[in-house]
Amino acid sequence: TYVQALFDFDPQEDGELGFRRGDFIHVMDNSDPNWWKGACHGQTGMFPRNYVTPVN
């Protein structure tokens, strides 16, 4: 499953995934309602669910 970033996200903690608005992120785990795990630009980490939108 892929999502697209609605906003820039700069990691604040180790293990978070940084990205820029418009980036596509491969979702690896969406079991938590607020923080998902994904991959983008060769990196993996957690990111806030409300920063992304589903891609059809």
Rank of each mutant, 00 (worst) to 15 (best):
Q4C: 05
L6D: 10
F7I: 15
G42Y: 06
D23S: 04
V27K: 01
N30C: 13
P54D: 13
R49M: 09
D10E: 15
I25Y: 02
Y2Q: 06
A39I: 07
A5L: 00
P54F: 08
A5P: 01
F7Y: 09
M46N: 11
E13R: 14
F9K: 06
L6N: 08
P33L: 11
D32M: 06
G38S: 02
G18F: 04
S31C: 07
F9D: 01
D8M: 00
G42C: 05
N34C: 08
N34I: 12
H41K: 10
V55A: 11
E16I: 06
D10V: 10
F9W: 09
G15F: 10
P48L: 07
N50W: 07
D23N: 05
H26A: 12
W35F: 13
R20V: 09
K37S: 09
N30E: 12
F19V: 02
A39K: 13
L6K: 15
G22S: 04
Q4R: 09
R49G: 06
F24V: 14
L17I: 09
Q12R: 15
M28Y: 07
P48T: 02
N30Y: 12
W36N: 00
R21P: 02
T53E: 14
A39N: 10
D29H: 04
N30I: 06
N56P: 06
M28S: 10
C40E: 01
D29C: 07
V55C: 15
F47W: 00
V55P: 07
Q12T: 11
N30Q: 15
D32G: 11
R20S: 11
N56D: 15
P54Y: 13
V52K: 00
M46C: 08
M28C: 09
F19E: 02
F47H: 00
M46V: 14
D29P: 02
F47C: 00
C40D: 01
D8A: 04
M28Q: 11
G22C: 03
Q4N: 05
W35P: 00
D10G: 05
N50Y: 08
G15R: 11
R49Q: 11
P48N: 08
Q43N: 12
T1L: 04
I25S: 02
K37H: 11
R20A: 11
S31Y: 06
M28V: 14
A5D: 02
T44Y: 12
V52Q: 00
G42K: 06
H26E: 14
E13C: 05
Q4I: 13
P33R: 09
D8C: 04
A5I: 02
F19Y: 02
F47V: 03
L17R: 02
D8G: 04
G45D: 02
Y2D: 06
C40L: 12
C40T: 07
G22M: 04
R21E: 15
C40M: 10
Q43A: 08
Q43M: 15
L17T: 01
T44W: 04
H41Y: 08
G15W: 12
D14H: 09
G42R: 06
F19S: 00
G22E: 04
V52S: 04
F47D: 02
N34E: 15
T44D: 06
D14V: 12
V27Q: 02
D23R: 01
Q4T: 11
F7G: 07
P48H: 07
A5H: 00
I25E: 00
I25F: 02
L6H: 05
G42H: 04
N34D: 14
G38D: 01
D10R: 11
W35S: 07
V27L: 12
W35Q: 11
D8N: 12
V55F: 11
P48M: 06
E16H: 15
Q43L: 12
P48S: 04
Q4E: 12
V27T: 01
N30K: 14
K37R: 12
Q43T: 10
Q4G: 02
G22W: 05
D10L: 05
H26D: 12
T53A: 15
F19L: 06
P54W: 12
S31D: 13
M46Y: 13
C40N: 05
A5T: 01
Q4D: 00
V27N: 00
T1N: 08
Q4K: 14
M46S: 10
T53C: 12
D32A: 07
D23T: 05
V3G: 04
T1G: 08
F9E: 03
D8Q: 05
Q4S: 07
S31W: 04
S31M: 07
R21F: 07
E16Q: 14
G38L: 00
G38T: 00
T1D: 06
N34Y: 09
E13N: 09
D29R: 03
M46F: 10
P54C: 10
Q4H: 05
Q12C: 15
T44R: 06
V52L: 02
F47E: 02
E16K: 15
H41Q: 11
N30P: 09
R49W: 04
Y2T: 12
